[in-house]
Structure formats: structure tokens, C-alpha cells
Design a protein around this nucleic acid. Structure first.
Lengths: 226, 226
DNA sequence: GTCGCGCTTCTTGCATACAAGATTGAAATG
DNA sequence: CATTTCAATCTTGTATGCAAGAAGCGCGAC
């Protein structure tokens, strides 16, 4: 059941039920899952390889609290990945568009009901769902991990994330994809992720973002913006 | 020493000293490293999370033999990542250009000396070195893992890889970066990785590539080619 | 010779035992 | 009362033991 433990813990992170910095006791998890520490450690080791948790020697396992640098890295990587995918992708098929539309509809419902746990999940899953259309499991897994890390960033830095603004961005990206304008979709996606990152960083420290953008040499807007 | 075990095994894969399909016995590795099976299993678990090895239950651990689909995924992801990075990156600084030039020089030496083990490593490391200039550890780690998987693909499918052709491509990409033409660099990188993939697939099955390109919806050339 | 069956051996799966550092709390001392 | 120190406890780190399935091999039957 080691994969089940990893998946369960990851789901808890993705849905925001486990906060960054939480301690994960091997013994408690072992008891909760009804297995020995061995399997728990295996699952935690896998999650550590994905930068979801980390172990402090002889102290314990903790859900990572992404530093500002880490946060910038994750967002930059997400932008690169999704932009690179969309800009080079063939226009989506009807079925693929329908799949995305179904997601957008779910988002809208969650916004209406103000279901925050579900929104947390859906906001990241939108981007996973986009790259999922490639059928590229490697790409999807990478994006899934980044989305999980993004949640930890949001939970740490963002007191109250503006789900409505994100949802509107998602709708705009969806509409560009739906009309076959992948170039616009790529650009909108890039800008959307920049905005989300900026919103989070402003919550923390007003000028932190400029500092970080200099660290990572990725602050040039894609063609068609400046 | 679990990290050391993982790093050692990964290095062996990256340098082509361990072939895809090789069996990795927990007992033998434990003896070789002078530790118990526990630490070996931890290292193997980490490598499994990176798709470098896999375990067949009750049978053993094996270095992955990437399927044609997997190979296509890895190349597609590399293209997306590197294209997305370069197209959005600011022009490189003098120091960054010098770093890449040093790598190109190393490649040239290895080509001259026909040092195949070193070439195997350098061919993948070039792309790692490019994204390294971002200072984005997340991005670098992702690319590093993909480069390792690419080596397994080459070793499995490519009887004799044309290092000279790849080197020339690398030089062209470097020159584009050096003159600050990131757009050209991105395009050249994309095409280079396409060519390498095509070369490998042709060795295997002449028409396999078309089949695969249809599976992944990523066969559109970036702007400026078709 | 060839096919099939069973035993032996080798493999990983998982639990457990013990070691050793980190933490916490209480007791003793100033 | 404050502070310090030591012991009890809790944490992970690593090795080991045992179970269970897979594979290889030899022997016997046909």
C-alpha cells in the first residue's frame, strides 16, 4: 500500500487539508494507515523526491514551507512548461475542448458555492488538465507535482486568494484554446501565472518580487506583450 | 549514505556504464556499498520516482528500458522545457556565455578523442547547462532527470549515435545564444531535439516516429519553420 | 529426447528491534 | 523565583529477521 499512502498524503496537500510546515510523524501515519513505519518512510521518501515534504535528520518529516526563491522557481517552471507546450501544440480536438469546458464548468460551480477546498484543487488542476491533453504522462506528472507545490506556496503566502480572478483568467485561456488560437492561449497562460505569482508576493513583501525576478532570468514577457 | 548511493547509480546511468534492462540486486548493491538493503532500497525508491529504475514485484529492480512511447514523451518534454525557457529568457550575460563556451570546448575535445563515455554525458549535459543559467534548481533537476532518461533511450535504440552531428547542432545553438538571438536559439534547440529523436526512431522502426507523433499532439514546428 | 513436476534457491515485501540524536519537563541549585 | 542540568521520552536512522512469491534445476515419467 505504499503508493496509496503517497497518493493519500499528496491529495491532502493538493486539497489544502495539510498545511505547509505540518509535522508528519512516521509513527502516527503508520498507525493511521495500519502498516509499519517502513511503508510510511517509503511514501515519504517518494514525496521528498518531489519536493512536497522534507526530513530534518532526527527531528522529523515536515510538509515543505516553500521559500520565496522556491516559489519563484515553481512559478517560472510552470510558465515555461505550459507556454512551451501550448505554443507548439496543434489545435485541440472537439473532445479535448469539451474536457476543458467541463473543468471550467466545475470551477464556476465551486466559485458559486464558495467551496474553497474544491477551488484550491481545481485552480491547479486546470493547468494539469491542459497538459493532460498531450497524452504525455511525463509532462503531466511534472505539472502535477508543480501544482502541488504551488498549493503549498498559496497556503503559506496568500492569506485569501482571489479565486474569481483566477477563474476569469482560466476562462480566457480556455476560450483562446477553443477557437484554436494557441499562440494567444500560450501568452494568456504565461501572463496568468505571472499575475498569480505577483499577487502572492505582494501579499508578503511589496518589493520582493522584483528581487526574485532578477534572480531568475525569466522576466521577459513572451512575444506580443511589451 | 542513501543520497550517495542514488547519485552513484545515477552517474553510472548518465555515463552509460549501466545499460537499460540491467538488473540491480539489492543484496549485491548493499554489499558493494557496505550498507544494509534498507539504504539501497531507499536509493532505488528515489530513482524509481524519477523513472530511472523500476521494480518488478518479487522479481527485482531493473534499469528502465524506455518504450517508444516513453521515449517520445521524454523528447517532447525536453523540447517543451528548453523551448519555453529560451524563448522567454533574457539574453545571456558574458559569464553565462563563457560557461556555455567552456562546455562546447569540452565537447570538441571529446569528439576529437572519440571518448564515447564522456560524449554520452556531455551531450545531455549541454541542455542541463543551458537551463542551469536560469538559476532555477527546480528546472535544472527536471532537465537532469530527463537527460538521464534520454541516455537510456539512446543506449537502447541507437546503435551508434552521431555525436558529431549533435555537436554541430550544439555549436549552432550556442552561437545563437552568444549573439543574443534567443528566438533562434529556441527554434534551433527544438529542431535539434526533434532530429535526435527522429534519428533514434529511424534506427528502430522506419515508420514508428509518425505513429508516435500522432499519439503526442506536439508535432507542430515552432514559429519560423514550416 | 522431451515434457512436467517438485525442490531448492534467490528475489523482494514488510515488520520489527535497537541505536542515537533531539526535545521536553521536572527537579535541584543558585 | 530563575536557571541549569539531567533524565525520560520521542524522533528518525539503520540493520536484520522472516515471509512469500519467482525462477532455475534436476530428476523422473513417458
Amino acid at each position: 500500500m505504499p503508493r496509496g499512502i503517497e497518493a493519500t498524503l499528496l491529495a491532502a496537500v493538493v486539497e489544502g487539508r495539510i498545511k505547509p510546515g505540518s509535522k508528519l510523524s512516521e509513527n502516527q501515519l503508520a498507525e493511521a494507515f495500519g502498516v509499519s513505519r517502513t511503508l510510511v518512510r517509503e511514501a515519504l521518501t517518494r514525496l521528498e523526491a518531489r519536493n512536497i515534504v522534507l526530513v530534518q535528520p532526527r527531528k522529523g518529516w515536515f510538509v515543505v514551507e516553500p521559500s520565496a526563491e522556491e516559489a519563484a522557481e515553481v512559478y517560472a517552471t510552470r510558465r515555461i512548461l505550459e507556454y512551451g507546450f501550448l505554443i507548439n501544440a496543434a489545435p485541440f480536438t472537439e473532445a479535448q475542448i469539451a474536457d476543458l469546458q467541463a473543468h471550467i464548468e466545475e470551477e464556476r460551480k465551486a466559485v458559486d458555492q464558495n467551496d474553497k477546498t474544491r477551488l484550491t484543487y481545481l485552480m491547479g488542476d486546470f493547468h494539469v488538465r491542459i497538459v493532460k491533453q498531450s497524452g504525455n504522462a511525463t509532462l503531466v506528472e511534472t505539472m502535477r507535482t508543480l501544482a502541488a507545490r504551488t498549493n503549498l506556496i498559496s497556503l503559506r503566502y496568500q492569506s485569501e486568494h482571489n479565486a474569481l480572478a483566477s477563474h476569469k483568467d482560466h476562462v480566457a485561456i480556455f476560450e483562446a484554446i477553443a477557437r484554436g488560437d494557441m499562440k494567444a492561449a500560450a501568452r494568456l497562460s504565461y501572463e496568468h501565472l505571472e499575475d498569480v505569482e505577483a499577487g502572492i508576493m505582494i501579499d508578503t513583501s511589496p518589493n520582493a518580487i522584483d528581487l526574485l525576478k532578477n534572480t531568475l532570468r525569466l522576466d521577459e514577457a513572451p512575444n506580443g506583450r511589451g
